[in-house]
Design a binder for these strands. Sequence first.
DNA 1: TAGTCTGGGCTTTTT
DNA 2: GCCCAGACTA
Length: 733
Amino acid sequence: MDLLSGLNDAQREAVTAPPGPVMVMAGPGSGKTRVLTHRIAYMVQHLGARPRDLLAVTFTNKAAREMRQRVDSLLGGSGARSADSLTLGTFHAISARILRREAEAVGMRRDFVIYDDDDQMTLMRQVVKELGFDPKQVQPARVLAGISRAKGELIDPQDYPASSYFEEITRRAYLRYQDLLRVNNAFDFDDLLFALVRLLRDQPEARLRYQSRYAHLLVDEFQDTNTSQYALLRLLATESPDLFVVGDADQSIYRWRGADYRNVRRFLDDYPQARLILLEQNYRSTQTILDAAMAVIDRAPARQKKRLFTDRGSGIPVRVHEAYDETDEAHFAVETIALLTQRGQADPRDVAIMYRTNAQSRMIEEAFLQAGLPYNLVGAQRFYGRREVKDVVAYLRLIHNPSDQVSLLRVLNTPPRGLGAKAIETLLQTAERAGLSTAGLLIELGRNASSPLSEGFAARALGALSAFGRMLDAWLGRAESLPVTTLLDEVLAHTRYQNYLDDGTEEGAERWENVLELRNVAADFDDMDLASFLENVALVSDQDTLTDAQNAPTLLTLHAAKGLEFPVVMILGLDEGLLPHQRSFDDPEEMAEERRLFYVGITRAKDQLFLVRALRRRQSGTAMASEPSRFLQDIPSDLVNGEFGFQRTREQSSYQRQTRWDSWSAPPAPKEAVFRSGMRVRHPAFGEGMVIESRLEHDDEVVTIAFQGAGFKRLSVSLARLEILEDLPDDSA
DNA sequence: TAGTCTGGGCTTTTT
DNA sequence: GCCCAGACTA
């Protein structure tokens, strides 16, 4: 039974528990993923379950991928025994897949699209205006927040409680918004769950079908489920369910998204016979780090005390540092990492820098750029939120689902085709009067520009519209038969999209790079269909973008850090107002969540933990003195080694210097010059140039270069990333 | 109609 | 300090 060897008693108990409701309460680093994967393998190998009978839910797509790989290697099987047939994914991804099959049953077409925040905003802005409100008075984001909360609680628009004026507006907006989603054949994130709950709740036949389809249910990060997700589980579970959930109430950090750690309590009430298993031994962190973590979390009100222990030894103290301001803070982080690396105490990729808000990453990125050092940034928004990426995706979504008016309006005049507000308004009105969809009307105009429907359009607009219609018509005819990349290439070619982006600036070139990157992603879907590609694009999360492609530190928010571990963790911004965040000050529940967030951050660290704050911090432009985070006081001083409480001035601060390192370990001093006059070289910023002179100075080689665009520069070879383009033969002089 | 300007708003975390 | 939307101008 080598599947069970290497597991401790509690882990083994969880893995081998007889089918039935089981709740595993797993502290950080206690081998929770290990338990889940082994549980799956155990069921297949020893309890006669087929992988296809299992439904396993994870919190991110990345976690799902990793889990599938690990199960795969545990099973080592093929065919019916392989992990391929396992249903494994996030609640949203699994729901989307099922809804694709059941689209008709929930009143949608199977080519539906999934709207992200941006799309939702576009639609809601339209709704607010339609209802006669000023988007400045009635903020679409606030209305959407209310609707999202309602959907998470499974409240229909008709039942939306309207006890205030704003709620009454929200109720009306909710009704109209749902109509529009339906017309556009689109789901938003919350709808994916709600629609499936409705299906299973209202259609007993479907419920029975899926209950028997998925005989065994497993859920990771259970503490972060919300009402609709829990309802989904209850609906999928039979009278005597095999329901295995793993979670840690102390790591519940998504309350704001409707997650309710009280689902843990609810589970135990709903399944009083449930077996409860505690995993307390930690295999990740030193005892010092665990003690600091427990000191922080023990102050949380109303919580079940847990003990965390390790046999890893106490390790080195937590280091606390107080910087002058946020720039200083960022430089401290970068230089500390460079020093650790040079001393051989850590590899750059071993280090994570964590922070409360995404806005903080900017400073840190700049510090890295100034030092000439690479970093990995976790954040899907960075890529999928980009305008050019969204444009291209919108074209594909429109082709997939011509009813999708949000996408249609996005691309109709992108690149500019001379279509303004007037033409678009006429288009929408004509379509409505003729009882056609907007896309339908465009295609009609494309086929027959002198159609009776063309009256009312300015001649120039009509030309542009019918050209667009023909283009769309052609794509629609071929979409199904083409691989995604081919279709994408056609879209780019027909719209002359590169031409549009390429304005000669560096930014334009970068935007085009992003489009090509999207094409790379699409290439992975060439043997699948457009729907799979679009679904994947819609459901990626920040954490899914984490790559360790380059050997560099990782920058990420504390939320994105959940489920990860790093040998060295630096948490920045430990100031009142940031962590805990200002918005949590007047709500004890939210304050408790900030505390748990800090706890999650601390417990990511295996060996070394740095806690950093700044004396002054800029908030919306103006610098203000800031107070140390209240959480810092909770950490016993005997665990800490640091320089706290110094009142430092900018001059005294040692991390203002803007050293360029350029590589993580300092290169050995050069003994002889590498560059010779006459050599052609390229510099990342200055472009191409020719070496005029080179000589050795202070353990470094200093070259003078005449750049074609930037003139003469004196550069230090160890700092400037110079690339030799052309060496001269020896006899050329 | 398209590009530029300006004023106002805002800043938590994300499937 | 930054970004966006709407206003304004070419």
